[in-house]
Design a protein around this nucleic acid. Structure first.
Lengths: 204, 204
DNA sequence: GTGACTTTCTAGCGTTGCTAGCGACAGGAG
DNA sequence: CTCCTGTCGCTAGCAACGCTAGAAAGTCAC
């Protein structure tokens, strides 16, 4: 086997790997689009296969199962959320905390299916100490940065977890129609007021 | 048809209705037990029918479908949560808000499947203005009562919604393993401190 | 007993996630 | 050019799902 032939083979393999990677992403995108258009119940392996114009078994050559596809969508969604939070900058007179909160809630409201895959549907994404996907760390990092200015003497990580939890609770209960839309504004104001280091004089 | 016969018929119908009601409850209990033991994925109509020792179609003579069974479990779960919150009284030096929060989180932790049916799985339970189940109003009412002492000048209903949202966010993210257990205590302390009307002097 | 009515079960439909095993095709060897 | 080999994607099918039609069993007044 000549080195030329080897080189040839390698480039062919590269092309194949590239095509495989493209198809991999195609599946993820199709699953996300289908879920956002018709909800996760509509995302069946048959419909997904039809959408990417391959047969079902092809999906299983890329992902271990349907759960793994949802997980891939979720992780990429975290990357997107991180980007959105990073771009969210306070307008005049607005706190960074408020800008982040509003961006987070808007994301959850506008992309409910994606949000669902990320934070509601239980998946075996390793959130613990081991091998957390970078996209997740990025998103959480953005929240930490937004909380930092109001941290005071409080534990930054715990405070960020509380901020995130509150936003998550609001987002999911709203999505389920369990909160009264009349209070949307007041609820957020109360959260931001409560988390901020005000001494109480600027509360209504 | 004599009046005696009519009376007889009526009592027989009463007995039948009573037996039907008992079986109705039996199905709900079986579904809840099965879900709590093995998760909602394990609650199939076949397994449920087997557990109540009837065939599948019997389930459909009581409920419109599987969703309706889950909904019934959820509503009764709300009643149970309301009772637990009502019994939750602060111990020495503890605020009522903290007692309620701890009881709520303990409920979510100890009965994750039940909690899931109540507040996570989307159902068409009418949360809006029309025909909200009484159990739900009771549970929310208990939260309102717990928030009232710290309300200050703030809108009581919006503040309660925020309190509930924060607890719900903490509960669900914890359940998914998305929060670090190390911060469990600090997170709750921060929430209670933030929501209370402290002037900041008692924050660490 | 008999006939009408209710209740319950058997059996099956269409769909789901997933997989075994076949056929087509590309690339290297002679 | 022809054969061989290994990769690749497809067809077809499995078990389990929610749900339902229609048969079978049971119950009651007469």
């Amino acid at each position: 086997m000549s080195s030329g032939a080897r080189f040839f083979v390698v480039t062919i393999q590269n092309r194949r790997e590239r095509e495989r990677a493209e198809r991999h992403q195609l599946i993820i995108d199709a699953a996300r689009d289908l879920a956002e258009a018709e909800g996760w119940d509509a995302v069946t392996t048959r419909r997904l296969a039809e959408k990417v114009e391959y047969s079902q078994p092809v999906l299983y050559s890329h992902f271990k199962g349907k759960d793994a596809i949802v997980r891939a969508v979720a992780i990429q969604g975290c990357g997107e959320l991180a980007r959105i939070l990073h771009k969210a900058r306070p307008s005049r007179g607005e706190s960074r905390l408020r800008a982040a909160a509003e961006a987070y809630l808007e994301f959850a409201r506008e992309r409910p299916a994606l949000y669902d895959a990320m934070f509601v549907q239980q998946s075996d994404i390793p959130w613990g100490t081991e091998e957390v996907p970078q996209e997740l760390l990025d998103a959480f990092g953005e929240l930490v940065a937004a909380v930092e200015p109001v941290r005071g003497e409080r534990d930054l990580e715990a405070l960020t977890e509380l901020f995130w939890s509150s936003l998550h609770g609001i987002a999911t209960l709203m999505q389920g129609g369990r909160l009264r839309p009349v209070h949307d504004e007041a609820r957020l104001d109360l959260l931001l007021g409560a988390l901020s280091l005000t001494q109480g004089e600027d509360r209504p």
